[in-house]
Amino acid sequence: MNDSQLLRYSRHILLDEIGIEGQQRLLDAQALVIGAGGLGSPAAMYLASAGVGHITLVDDDTVDLTNLQRQIAHTTERVGQGKAASARQTLLQINPEITVTALNERVDDARLAALVAAADVVLDCTDNFATRHAVNRACVAARKPLVSGAVIRFDGQISVFDPRGGEQPCYSCLFPQDQKFEDVACSTMGVFAPLVGVVGAMQAAEALKLLMGVGASLAGRLMMLDGLHMEWTSIGVARHGDCPVCAANNPPPGA
């Protein structure tokens, strides 16, 4: 770490739980952020400011005027640009010393598997169940920790699914992929802008903790936020022994 980096990250380094070693882990890490919208914007911006050495952004959408109410990585001047490229520009303005890869594409399973395998942590900042389940399958297969967030209207939720621990649930244990869940879109249901900032920042916090190996993650817990009354609820999430996604990859103890 050079003198400029020691100064830039000094407030992290001052924390006993992080120090120079923890900050170096961030500099050496690679994070995959899938979705560069409402959740992906604050999540990626905090990862960049914290010094995660390589951030890969994946989003096949373009910046629209209606996005700017909450997707803070984008600006009015960038309407019509790809979200991944727009967010990359913002992250490099925050921290030009990191590497940011912008992928303006909708990734298939094979491409997703390769991207997840190369990452140290994955942040799911998407808005539909099909993509969330695809990301979860890739993370379980590659045994990579997944930080999942979601927000609609005044409601938010966040959890961590870490297949590195054999007893931990995966996303499919919470929302079985063979059950029908209705996707609800911001374009029809609306979303309270600050909530994506709250949940996205929490996703970044969980990802940073995982990368540095500090504290306790949200693995096995689902945090739900009622933003209208500003109340948090925490519930336990158990692993399903017959989950078609994670059971074969992580057999329960004694099996």
Rank of each mutant, 00 (worst) to 15 (best):
D183P: 04
R70L: 03
A205E: 11
L195E: 07
A118W: 00
K180H: 13
E182C: 02
R25E: 03
L92I: 08
P252H: 04
L47P: 11
I34W: 11
Y171C: 04
R132V: 07
T99I: 10
P194N: 07
V100A: 04
P253Q: 02
Y46H: 14
L7D: 11
A85Y: 04
D226A: 08
D64E: 15
D178S: 13
R70N: 07
G215H: 02
E21Q: 13
P169Q: 10
P252K: 02
A185K: 14
H54A: 13
R239G: 04
A204E: 05
A130Y: 00
F175W: 12
L174I: 06
D64C: 11
V121C: 10
F161M: 06
L195M: 06
L65C: 00
Y171V: 03
G254H: 01
L103V: 14
V100G: 09
D28Q: 15
S41L: 10
Q179K: 14
P251F: 08
D59S: 09
T233A: 14
V184L: 14
L222F: 08
S159G: 15
Y171S: 04
G53L: 05
A205W: 02
R106P: 00
F175K: 03
P194T: 06
R164P: 11
Q89G: 02
P194F: 07
L211T: 01
V237Y: 03
L228F: 14
M212C: 13
A207K: 07
S10Y: 00
P251H: 07
S41E: 07
T75R: 15
M189R: 06
D109Q: 15
A205N: 14
V63L: 03
E77Y: 00
A102Y: 01
L57D: 04
E21I: 10
Q179S: 09
R78P: 01
V237N: 04
C170I: 00
A248D: 13
D16K: 15
Q30G: 01
M45L: 13
H12A: 05
M1I: 04
S172T: 12
C170N: 10
P96F: 04
L32W: 09
G241I: 00
A130K: 13
S159Q: 11
V116L: 07
G37F: 02
A29Y: 09
H240L: 10
V198E: 03
F175Y: 15
M202E: 12
D226G: 01
P251D: 08
V140E: 05
R153F: 01
D162Y: 12
M189I: 06
S159E: 05
V122D: 08
A238H: 12
A193E: 05
G241Q: 06
I55A: 11
A44F: 05
P176G: 09
P145V: 06
A29K: 07
M45K: 05
D28L: 04
G19W: 06
Y9W: 08
C186K: 00
I72H: 03
A48G: 12
D28V: 02
G22H: 05
V191P: 01
A238C: 01
V184I: 15
R106D: 02
E105N: 12
L47T: 08
P96D: 13
R88D: 01
L115F: 08
Q81F: 07
L174M: 13
R70M: 02
L91C: 10
L210I: 15
T90M: 14
L7M: 11
P42T: 06
K144E: 11
V237A: 08
A216W: 00
Q203H: 08
F154Y: 15
V33N: 08
